[in-house]
C-alpha cells in the first residue's frame, strides 16, 4: 500500500481512497463532514461527468458529486483494491 496522500480529484476512477485530511474551511468543511467525510472514511471514485468535472464519489453508501475545486482539498491515501478487500 502506498503511503502517499493525494488530492481526491486525482484519485483514478474506479479506485479507492481513505480520507486523511480536509484542507477546507467554514461551511464547505462542515458540508463535507455532514456527508460523513471524516478521518479514515473510504471513498470510491466512480465517474467523471461528461465535461470531466464534477466527479461522482461513493461516500458511505451514497453517491455524491464534487467539483474538483473542493475535491482537490480533500487529501486521501490511495488504496489498491486488494488492500480494501483484506
Amino acid at each position: 500500500m502506498t503511503k502517499k496522500w493525494i488530492p481526491l480529484d486525482q484519485l483514478p476512477v474506479g479506485s479507492f481512497g481513505k480520507v486523511k485530511e480536509l484542507a477546507l474551511e467554514g461551511n464547505i468543511r462542515r458540508r463535507m463532514l455532514d456527508l460523513g467525510l471524516v478521518y479514515d472514511t473510504t471513498v470510491e471514485s466512480l465517474r467523471k461527468s461528461p465535461a470531466g468535472d464534477p466527479t461522482a464519489y461513493e461516500i458511505r453508501g451514497t453517491v455524491i458529486a464534487l467539483r474538483s475545486q473542493e475535491a482537490s482539498k480533500i487529501l486521501v491515501e490511495s488504496m489498491y483494491k486488494e488492500d480494501f478487500n483484506e
Binding site: N27, A56, T62, V63, E70
Partner: peptide, 11 residues
C-alpha cells in the same frame, strides 16, 4: 466566485 458544491445522485 462560485461557491462549494456537493450534489447527491440518489438511487
Amino acid at each position: 466566485l462560485p461557491s462549494s458544491f456537493a450534489l447527491e445522485l440518489p438511487p
